[in-house]
Design a protein around this nucleic acid. Structure first.
Length: 414
RNA sequence: GUGGGCGUAGCUCAAUAGGUUAGAGCACCUGGUUGUGGCCCAGGAGGCUGGGGGUUCAAGUCCCCUCGCUCACCCCA
């Protein structure tokens, strides 16, 4: 029986990994422009960290976590909890009251895999901790938008506010009343949700349910004064930056910790998994995890698999050539001369390919061409005797003689 | 956890109503060119047809089971 990767776990092999590297490069660059610092976090945490932050009743905590039950530790299903744990543990807010942090890495959820959804998946995660300013919300959203734009991806932005502990209970009661009045017209899932997570009824996909809830009370219309001010502040700031968005009063979040601003970048090109990035504000979560009370925060996560799927649907970005030089040496003498030459050129910073299988010149040239090398250096008995190799342009046709020493070759390659 | 679709070469796919030795394209290797890549031509290698059981003179093809992949629901990035 052949051993294969686990269900929902994938290898990223050469040919595909370049796109991931490109994605990470662009992301790091954009994050840097907004003054975010990278933080690297462990993949395992105490189970309690996620139970407390994400919420005991959520699907993630209830049935999707990879947990070592005997050790009370869990492979992270998302990054925010771990990041805040580290923020608190190292007192990062003390030196710098407003911290901008990002992290990149794998997350784990035991779900049934489908397009754009794996059990080990990867996220780009950015958080701003310590500021309640609505401009921070807008700036964070603008950063995500800029990153997606630089990746040439066309997505749309949806925005909503979930209120806060001051105004949500009253709204929730209002919504429950609305749902209870038309419960028998809703699907089975919605009946269940009305008890467990009534907000979820709002984004049910069943057409019949949608019809019945079109005039449901919207959280955004029942915000308390502070939340309403904040929400309009976010919208004004987004307008100021020229970020276009659509208010979606039915957009809710799956994790308990969100409050006020929530947003999603969605696409129509990924089947059912429409969200490529999502996030929101989580004022109070830092306090909940044992950090300073009243510490506000906001962040987003982007699904890298989903971004890669989108990137694969469009023309490939220009990626650097695989090699600067491929050496084709024929005969023992030539090989013994070429081998240390390759080492010297590599030490000098060039990417050099060289075959050690004793293959024919033709085979080596063919390999050189396929490898994407810009040029080939041909060395045979004649060249060894003369002290000159043939430097051939693989993009065009010409070739020239170059002295067989690393200095001369380095010059010729530049 | 629930449903649908699909499993044949590394990849994408063929294989007439069950019928000899399971084919093609791409990729790979060799040669055509004793030392020159791309284009072309010729040849080669590569498969327990996912696995197991059953029906049959005969199964890639029909039946059952199982495993895997995939899409969707749920949920979510």
């Amino acid at each position: 029986m052949k051993i294969k990767a686990l269900k929902g776990f994938k290898d990223v092999i050469p040919g595909e990994v370049e796109l991931w590297q490109y994605l990470e490069k662009v992301a790091r660059d954009v994050f840097g422009r907004y003054q975010f610092s990278e933080i690297r976090l462990p993949v395992l945490e105490e189970t309690a960290l996620f139970a407390r932050s994400i919420g005991e009743g959520t699907d993630i905590v209830e049935k999707e976590m990879y947990t070592f039950v005997d050790k009370q530790i869990t492979m992270r299903p998302e990054a925010t909890a771990s990041l805040l744990r580290a923020y608190i543990e190292h007192g990062l807010g003390v030196q710098k009251p407003v911290q901008r942090l990002f992290t990149i890495g794998p997350m784990f959820r035991h779900e049934r895999p489908q397009k754009g959804r794996l059990r080990q998946f990867h996220q780009l995660d950015a958080e701003i901790i310590g500021s309640a300013s609505p401009r921070v919300d807008a700036e964070l959203i603008a950063m995500a938008a800029l990153l997606l734009a630089e990746l040439q991806l066309s997505v749309s932005l949806e925005l909503n506010s979930l209120g806060c502990p001051a105004c949500r209970p009253a709204y929730r009661a209002l919504l429950l009343e609305f749902i209870a009045a038309r419960l028998d017209g809703l699907c089975d899932d919605c009946r269940r949700r009305s008890a467990t997570n009534p907000l979820r009824v709002l984004d049910c996909k069943v057409p019949g349910c949608r019809e019945r809830i079109v005039d449901a009370p919207a959280m955004a219309m029942h915000l308390c004064g502070d939340c309403a001010d904040h929400f309009s502040g976010v919208q004004q700031a987004l307008d100021l930056l020229g970020i276009t968005y659509r208010l979606n009063k039915f957009m809710v979040r799956g994790l308990d910790y969100y409050c006020r601003t929530t947003f999603e970048f969605i696409t129509t090109d990924l089947g059912a998994q429409a969200a490529v990035a999502a996030g929101g504000r989580y004022d109070g979560l830092v306090g909940l995890l044992g950090g300073p009370e009243q510490c506000p925060g906001i962040g987003f996560a982007m699904g890298m698999e989903r971004l890669v799927l989108l990137l694969q649907q469009q023309p490939a970005p220009a990626l650097p050539a695989a090699a600067d030089l491929a050496i084709a040496a024929v005969g023992e003498e030539a090989v013994l001369l070429a081998f240390p030459l390759a080492q010297e050129l590599r030490a000098a910073g060039f990417r050099v390919a060289m075959d050690h299988e004793g293959r024919s010149l033709k085979a080596q040239m063919k390999q050189a061409d396929k490898s994407g090398a810009a040029r080939a250096l041909i060395i045979g008995a004649t060249e060894v005797a003369a002290g000159y190799g043939l430097l051939r342009d693989l993009r065009g046709e010409g070739q020239q003689e170059v002295a067989l020493n690393s200095a001369a070759l380095a010059d010729a390659l530049l």
